[in-house]
């Protein structure tokens, strides 16, 4: 593991959905600038883990630190106390998230989507936000779609716009929740290219994905999750080349044999 300072640190995270124990003691450290990919069968808790990192799901136990600061809740006199909604929002503003279903705002144009949070959350001047948005749209290859509405775009274009929207907040880290799973096969590559480019620019990234080639080529570390636990983690070469755990071997055999 790298010696670089931590961007995200997770200790002892537990989460239930009713009687279902979906995260069973997750410990994970992501260094600044590191790209990690989380793989595993569906229902293994990968997406839930990602959603806990920016508190879209509330974990019952455990601690999350982002850039050295404990977030979402603190121990006060021996009992856990949640941060205020405003404080939680302030942390989320520092962590970008990209969703499987894009979740662009359909009533806003592409540029409207991108400047929305910089203008209304970070209170940046509109023309400055626009300038930055145009740079980001160039970065994700959407300079010709500035004034289009999301419905007028292909899935791949929507997802690239969603990435630009997250980047517009100048996040410290980016979370990708199966960002290519809802795309037609021929549109997957354009989104992965943007993600690969982002990784090469030094962005800290946590990527939940079924794209094993992406994980193999881009990730510094691959995490294999099953039944709410991290079963195995290591460099892609080790995980894909010589997995130690039987469950990892079993999973890789099913996904790679397709």
């Amino acid at each position: 593991m790298t010696d670089a300072p931590s961007m995200i640190e997770i200790e002892g995270l537990h989460k239930h959905f009713g009687s279902l124990h979906v995260l069973r003691g997750i410990d994970l450290r992501v260094a600044k600038g590191e790209v990690i990919c989380i793989i595993g069968p569906s229902g293994s808790g990968k997406s839930t883990l990602l959603r806990c990192i920016n508190h879209l799901e509330v974990a019952e136990a455990g601690r999350i630190r982002i850039d050295g600061q404990t977030v979402y809740r603190d121990e006060v006199n021996g009992s856990m106390r949640s941060h205020s909604n405003r404080a939680i929002s302030a942390v989320r503003a520092q962590v970008g998230m990209v969703f499987q279903q894009f979740n662009l705002f359909p009533h806003l144009t592409v540029i409207g989507n991108i400047i929305e949070a910089p203008v209304h959350v970070l209170r940046r001047p509109k023309d400055e936000a626009r300038r930055r948005a145009l740079e980001l749209l160039a970065q994700v290859g959407l300079s010709d779609k500035v004034d289009a509405y999301p419905e007028e775009l292909s899935g791949g274009q929507q997802q690239r716009a969603a990435i630009a929207r997250a980047l517009a907040m100048d996040p410290k880290a980016m979370l990708f929740d199966e960002a290519t799973s809802a795309l037609d096969p021929e549109l997957v590559a354009e989104v992965l290219t943007v993600m690969r480019d982002l990784a090469s620019r030094g962005m800290t990234m946590v990527v939940v994905t079924h794209e094993m080639n992406f994980a193999r080529q881009v990730a510094a570390r691959v995490i294999f999750m099953d039944h709410g636990q991290i079963v195995e983690e290591g460099e892609p070469r080790a995980i894909f080349g010589a997995p130690r755990e039987p469950r990892t071997r079993e999973f890789l055999r099913t996904v790679l044999d397709r």
Partner: peptide
């Protein structure tokens, strides 16, 4: 979710 993830209250 998208609005919350962008830091909106």
């Amino acid at each position: 979710d998208a609005a919350a993830a962008l830091g909106m209250t």
